[in-house]
Design a protein around this nucleic acid. Sequence first.
DNA 1: TGTACATCAGTGAACGCGCGTTCACTGATGTAC
DNA 2: TGTACATCAGTGAACGCGCGTTCACTGATGTAC
Lengths: 216, 216
Amino acid sequence: MATAGKETPRERYRAQLRAEIKERAWEQIAAAGAPGLSLNAIAKQMGMSGPALYRYFTSRDELITELIRDAYRSLADTVRAAAVVDADLTALGHALRSWALDDPQRYFLVYGTPVPGYHAPDDVTEIASEIMESLLDAAQSCPGADTADQTRLEAHLAEHRQWAADHPAPPAALRRALLFWTRLHGILSLELAGHFTGMGLDPAELYASELRHLTQ
Amino acid sequence: MATAGKETPRERYRAQLRAEIKERAWEQIAAAGAPGLSLNAIAKQMGMSGPALYRYFTSRDELITELIRDAYRSLADTVRAAAVVDADLTALGHALRSWALDDPQRYFLVYGTPVPGYHAPDDVTEIASEIMESLLDAAQSCPGADTADQTRLEAHLAEHRQWAADHPAPPAALRRALLFWTRLHGILSLELAGHFTGMGLDPAELYASELRHLTQ
DNA sequence: TGTACATCAGTGAACGCGCGTTCACTGATGTAC
DNA sequence: TGTACATCAGTGAACGCGCGTTCACTGATGTAC
């Protein structure tokens, strides 16, 4: 009953199978998108019968929620790692890009089209703030010059900073963290969705240019 | 047989019913997202039997493709109208935002998570270049100062401008049009997906700030 | 060490559902003489 | 103007499919004495 300590062989086996189910799930998502995810199809691919998976996930929804959680967790860890090694927005930006290109569908599970009915569980929003925290850490220790004509935004952020309530970053850092997030996300999501194909430009150049501009 | 000229009552009726089917389709998409679109459900909602819709669309895929085309067309028209009235990036930016907020699912049909197998038909990519053209028009007639440290991006764009091959805009305008697109899209897509909720900031402020910064 | 029992993984049949799509048909609307 | 015919909208039955999920059951694995 102890949650910590030695794992029994059965527990180990369970964890292993859960992991394999998730792996197959990611493969299916990569092949047909998240809405096409099917427990039966996963079971078939693993050489098991459909109902067998209900030993490991209580429903299809639980599996999807778990995948979303994993995606957020993975992003938060990636970002935090980059923010810890050297609190540098540039490094963080490149880490973010690598993470996104590594698995586009995982990126879209976090930042893609929302499903009208669905609401993410609470712990996911907690992970989301963890991500913002890492951004703020990095933005704070990057003391570039402020662009004069954006003081209006900083004034707004100085009084609307619930998202950074626990963080001591000054308005200029808030602004930088926020723009880092929205600008890079803009490029990444357009790139991953293929909206640059045929345009003849290199998204990496564009990305690097924005990153340079953000860190000055 | 003439494609132009008087419409027969039957043709008028056909067009009308096609339009109503699309309307119901949009309602369904708004309620459950695009993957949940079902011809049978639309028919039921219209008080018809399922197979009846096959008089108006040869398949579910044709309907979806048509909706995507309409979404692109609508965006292109909106953007062009704003670019024609006064070739002003600020006005264009506000028009874009209104269009996006007006129907988030329509926005996501254009810029949302791509379906792994799906490829848009050729005429849709043509409409996409139409959109870039309007952006370039507006960007060209907005002669703000260039930020010095982005000359590297301009140099890249000067030599990678297939997307603006038919357009006389100089590199500085290319850069502005591109950043207009990626930055505003970043904010809009995060806002529409609800990623700002709970953060306490006003996306409109952020959007306006970026717009101001882009037009200087 | 062996025996008796509890736990749990996985199966196969079944339920109900909604989907896209086809097909032969009915009945109304339009067209030609 | 009326009659004969062609066109076309819409129906209802049917097909085959895959889905999520439940349930009673088998057989293997672990546990207690």
